[in-house]
Amino acid sequence: MRLGRLLLAALLGLVLVGSLTTAVHADPRWVFYTKDKTRYESPWFKGAHRVMVPYGCTTAPYYSPDSRCRDQRGFHHGLDIAMRCGTPLYAPYRFKVVSNDSLGPAYGDNPLLLRNARLGWDLVIGHTRRVYVREGQVVRRGTMFARAGDSGAPDGCHLHFERRAVGGGLSTATWPRPLLALTPRERP
């Protein structure tokens, strides 16, 4: 009888620890402006993570009303993905790091502007914590080049991915999801 209680207590303890481990990875500042609860993997980052703010018209309060959106909604030019601060980013393609002087403070202190002219894209990555590459550097496939952070982000650790035309500004931003190759994480 006593052994049964000890085993039950141990099992409950393991369940509690497992649920706490999951909770530790959540940032209490995260606010999700999508009903999509899917966790996505990408060759750009380690792990599987949820979308916080999707591309396009959004109810997120950070964006001015846009004529493309009904009900006075704003337009988000990228895709925000919630992830723990320090999550590593990897280069799934070869790219060149170009000057980020054209990017404003909304992208944080260390935004990256990456270019692959051969494949026809620029990629803005905002809210990085640590960057391991420098302007002018050609980054080879597989290289860890930065870590996620919350610089300039009022809603916790995440990364902002924004695909643009080569050399283009914000007005050239297009849906970044295909470039990120987001795939739903398989459930065990």
Rank of each mutant, 00 (worst) to 15 (best):
Ala153Gly: 05
Ala117Thr: 13
Leu89Trp: 13
Val138Asn: 03
Arg115Trp: 05
Arg134Ser: 15
Met83Gly: 08
Phe145Trp: 06
His158Cys: 02
Thr38Asp: 06
Lys96Val: 12
Gln72Ile: 00
Ala181Lys: 14
Trp175Met: 04
Leu159Ile: 13
Val133Gln: 07
Arg147Phe: 00
His158Gln: 12
Leu182Ile: 05
His49Leu: 06
Val24Ala: 11
His158Ile: 04
Gly169Trp: 04
Leu123Trp: 11
Met1Pro: 09
Arg50Asp: 01
Ile125Leu: 12
Ala82Cys: 04
Gly120Arg: 12
Ala48Glu: 08
Asp109Met: 07
Trp175Gly: 02
Phe75Ala: 01
Gly78Ala: 04
Arg141Gln: 15
Asp36Ile: 09
Lys96Ser: 12
Cys85Ala: 14
Asn116Gln: 10
Pro154Leu: 13
Gly152Ser: 09
Pro43Arg: 10
Glu135Gly: 07
Arg187Pro: 00
His25Tyr: 13
Met144Ile: 12
Phe145Gln: 07
Thr143Cys: 05
Asp101Arg: 14
Ala26Gly: 00
Asp109Gln: 14
Tyr93Gln: 11
Thr38Trp: 06
Arg134Glu: 14
Ser102Phe: 03
Gly78Glu: 02
Gly169His: 03
Gly126Ser: 05
Tyr40Gly: 07
Asp80Pro: 00
Asp150Pro: 00
Gly149Ser: 11
Pro88Trp: 08
Leu12Lys: 02
Tyr63Arg: 00
Tyr33Ser: 00
Arg185Lys: 15
Leu182Phe: 05
Ser64Gln: 10
Gly104Glu: 01
Leu159Cys: 09
Val24Met: 10
Arg187Trp: 11
Arg129Phe: 11
Arg73Thr: 01
Lys35Asp: 15
Leu8Phe: 13
Gly168Cys: 07
Pro54Phe: 01
Leu16Tyr: 11
Leu159Met: 13
Leu8Ile: 11
Gly136Met: 10
Val97Trp: 06
Thr21Phe: 12
Met52Tyr: 01
Leu79Val: 04
Val131Leu: 05
Phe32Gln: 09
Asp122Pro: 11
Thr174Ser: 14
Asp150Trp: 03
Met1Leu: 10
Ala10Pro: 03
Trp44Ala: 06
Ala117Arg: 15
Thr87Arg: 06
Asp109Trp: 08
Val138His: 03
Arg177Leu: 07
Glu162His: 04
Ala82Met: 04
Arg130Ser: 15
Arg134Tyr: 12
Asn116Gly: 06
Ser19His: 11
Ala165Phe: 04
Tyr90Gly: 03
Gly4Gln: 13
Leu14Asn: 03
